[in-house]
């Protein structure tokens, strides 16, 4: 092994410093959710009381958030991947213009999008009070992320030639799309999926306007808890949030993993 120079140790130290700067508040916050009394510190002892309280009071928000995130993921996959394909294959100027426009929902404040949705559809009684109303907002917000990350991969591989190669071997459009195009865009789809789920789970601005008392999401509930209840409950909420989202993200990674032991065709 090569001997590591001073620069390496400096860089390592610097990285650790930054990481701890970011992670310490998170750990403190989660710890606060487990202490009996935050004011008197850890000496007051550890308890699951607050976590239990959060589970009692906010369980619904957690389920709704996960449901919304997965529904957003499904919608962005179904809409976004074909859209990216169409944009990647189109050579006209309009396609490039749409690609540029795709950043718009990100640049427009979530509140503005939410207001627009309310102005347009707020009077549709059943829709306004249903969770699908929030879903529409989330899909609007997250779709560009899916399209852009898939599109980036599609631009990087020579999509057109790959598809022509498959077609010359007799593959129909469906076969080309599912057997050649999608598998080769896997990394972009995975990146987009992680982005969509995390963004949807954490989305607050827009959701805060779109939600009704019966359709509260996790971040909205979190804001509630911080604003109106004990700090320990808010912190316990953060803890629950982490415990929910980390396995979800890992599961997505796992589901989209490169099939290492590929089904090899042996004679």
């Amino acid at each position: 092994m090569r001997k590591r120079g001073g620069l390496f140790w400096f860089q390592l130290g610097f990285t650790l410093l930054i990481v701890s700067f970011l992670i310490v508040p998170v750990i403190l916050s989660m710890l606060a959710g487990l202490t009996v009394n935050y004011q008197s510190g850890l000496e007051s002892g550890l308890t699951f009381r607050w976590v239990a309280a959060v589970w009692e009071g906010y369980r619904q928000t957690i389920f709704l958030s996960i449901g919304l995130a997965l529904a957003s993921l499904a919608a962005t996959l179904v809409l976004g991947v074909p859209a990216a394909y169409v944009l990647a294959r189109a050579r006209g100027g309009w396609a490039r213009a749409i690609e540029e426009l795709l950043v718009m929902p990100v640049a427009v404040p979530g509140l503005a999008t939410a207001l627009a949705l309310i102005v347009a559809y707020g009077t549709w009684g059943g829709f306004r009070t249903s969770w699908t109303f929030i879903l529409v907002g989330h899909v609007l917000f997250t779709l560009p992320f899916m399209v852009r990350s898939v599109l980036a991969v599609m631009h990087a591989i020579d999509l057109k030639t790959l598809e022509e190669g498959a077609a010359s071997l007799g593959a129909s459009f469906g076969q080309r799309f599912f057997q050649v195009i999608l598998p080769n865009c896997r990394s972009g789809i995975l990146a987009g999926a992680l982005m969509v789920v995390t963004l949807s789970m954490g989305e607050f601005n827009m959701t805060w306007l779109l939600h009704t008392p019966l359709t509260k999401t996790l971040p909205v509930g979190l804001a509630d808890a911080y604003a109106s209840l004990r700090l320990e409950i808010g912190s316990a909420y953060t803890l629950v949030f982490f415990v929910m989202i980390v396995p979800l993200l890992v599961a997505i990674q796992w589901a989209a993993r490169e099939p290492r032991a590929r089904r090899t065709e042996r004679a």
Binding site: I157, D158, T161, E164, G165, V180, P183, R186, T264, E265
Partner: peptide, 10 residues
């Protein structure tokens, strides 16, 4: 224009 998602046999 080989398919990167398949091995040579594939």
């Amino acid at each position: 224009a080989l398919f990167p998602n398949m091995d040579v046999r594939g």
